[in-house]
C-alpha cells in the first residue's frame, strides 16, 4: 500500500466546506483577502474558528492564507491576527512575505508555516532555504515541469504541495486595471470576483482569462484548467505530500464531483494501481462532462518546455 497524499481544496464558505468534507477532502485552504491572496471566499475569524471545528471533527485540516504582499498598514495587524489564528488552532498558515516570518518569531508563535509565493517557488535550494527558516511545507510554482516538482521533493525534507486541478493565477497587479480601463472608456460596472469578467487575447479567439479586482488589486487567471488526474500516479510515487484542487470560479457542485473523483482516484491507486488504470477513463469522462465549455482542460506547465 502506497502512502496517500493529502487532498487539499479551497473553500469559499462553511457550507461548501461541509460538502467538500463529505466528498472526501483531507484539508482546506481558506482565508480573508485582507491577509491572503485570491481566497475563494472571505472567512472572518469566527468563521475560521467554525471551519477548524468542523474540519477537526472529521480529522481534516485547515490552512489559512496569510500570503498577501503586505504594506506597512496591514503588517501592523499581523501580530494580533496570527495570535488569534494560533489560539483557534489552525493547522498551518500559508505565507510568502518574510515580514510574516519576522512576526511569527517576534510573537514566539508555534503556528506551522507553509511557504507559498506562487510564481517564485521554483527550485529546491529556495525551498530548503525557507525550510531552514521554519517552513514545514512549500507550495511549488505552477510554472514547473512535473520532473522539476518531483526533483524538488526528492531534494528537500519538508512537505511539498502541488496543484493538480483548476485554474492558476498568472498575473497580479496592485493597480485597479479593470476599473481604470472602464473609466477610460466611460463604462461602469462591477469588477469583483462575482462579476464574471474575462479577457480574450485579441489574436487568440479561444483564450479565456478570468480577471477580477479585490483589496489586493487585479488578478488574471489562466485560460485553461489544470487536470492531472491521469498523472496522479507520478505525484504519489514521487511522494508529493499534498495535492491541491483550486476552486476559484467553480461552483460547489462542480468541486464536489471533482473532489469525489480525486478522492477515489487516490484511494484506488494507493490500494491497487492496476485498478486505477481501468477506472481512469470513467473518471475523466465525468470531469469532461461537468467542465464548463469555455474552460479547456490541460496539463499546465507540467509537460511544457519554456524558453528564456
Amino acid at each position: 500500500m502506497k502512502t496517500k497524499p493529502e487532498l487539499l481544496v479551497t473553500a469559499k464558505d462553511l457550507e461548501e466546506m461541509g460538502r467538500l468534507l463529505d466528498a472526501g477532502a483531507d484539508a482546506f485552504s481558506i482565508g480573508h483577502q485582507r491577509y491572503g491572496l485570491r481566497v475563494a471566499g472571505d472567512f472572518e475569524l469566527p468563521q475560521i474558528e467554525e471551519a477548524v471545528k468542523l474540519a477537526h471533527q472529521r480529522q481534516a485540516k485547515v490552512y489559512v492564507s496569510v500570503n498577501a504582499l503586505f504594506h506597512n498598514d496591514v503588517i501592523k495587524l499581523l501580530p494580533d491576527y496570527l495570535k488569534q489564528l494560533e489560539q483557534i488552532g489552525v493547522d498551518a498558515i500559508v505565507f510568502g512575505d518574510p515580514g510574516v516570518l519576522m512576526t511569527v518569531w517576534e510573537i514566539d508563535s508555534k503556528l506551522r508555516l507553509h511557504w507559498n509565493t506562487e510564481t517564485t517557488s521554483t527550485n529546491y535550494e529556495t525551498v530548503n532555504y525557507w525550510a531552514k527558516k521554519g517552513a514545514s511545507r512549500a507550495i511549488v510554482a505552477r510554472e514547473l515541469s512535473l520532473d522539476n516538482v518531483l526533483k524538488i521533493k526528492a531534494k528537500t525534507n519538508i512537505e511539498i504541495q502541488a496543484q493538480v486541478h483548476g485554474m492558476t493565477c498568472i498575473f497580479h497587479s496592485a493597480r485597479r486595471l479593470v476599473r481604470n480601463y472602464m473609466q477610460h472608456i466611460n463604462e461602469e460596472g462591477r469588477t469583483d470576483l462575482e462579476a464574471g469578467l474575462y479577457l480574450k487575447e485579441t489574436k487568440r479567439e479561444e483564450s479565456h482569462h478570468p480577471i477580477y479586482e479585490d483589496m489586493n488589486g487585479t488578478h488574471i487567471m489562466s485560460s485553461e484548467d489544470i487536470c492531472m488526474l491521469e498523472h496522479l500516479p507520478a505525484f504519489i510515487d514521487g511522494n508529493v505530500d499534498s495535492l491541491k484542487i483550486e476552486g476559484l470560479f467553480k461552483t460547489t457542485a462542480y468541486l464536489e464531483q471533482v473532489v469525489r473523483i480525486y478522492r477515489e482516484a487516490i484511494d484506488t491507486y494507493c490500494a491497487d494501481p492496476e485498478k486505477f488504470q481501468t477506472k481512469l477513463n470513467d473518471w475523466l469522462h465525468v470531469i469532461h462532462s461537468i467542465q464548463p465549455a469555455e474552460r479547456r482542460l490541460g496539463t499546465g506547465f507540467y509537460f511544457k518546455e519554456q524558453i528564456y
Partner: peptide, 19 residues
C-alpha cells in the same frame, strides 16, 4: 504593471519564462 515576480503572462502567452 504587475508586482514584479508575480507575473507569468509571458509564460502563458508565449512559453517564455518572464522570471
Amino acid at each position: 504593471i504587475s508586482y514584479s515576480g508575480r507575473c507569468v503572462l509571458s509564460n502563458h502567452m508565449t512559453a517564455r519564462d518572464a522570471n
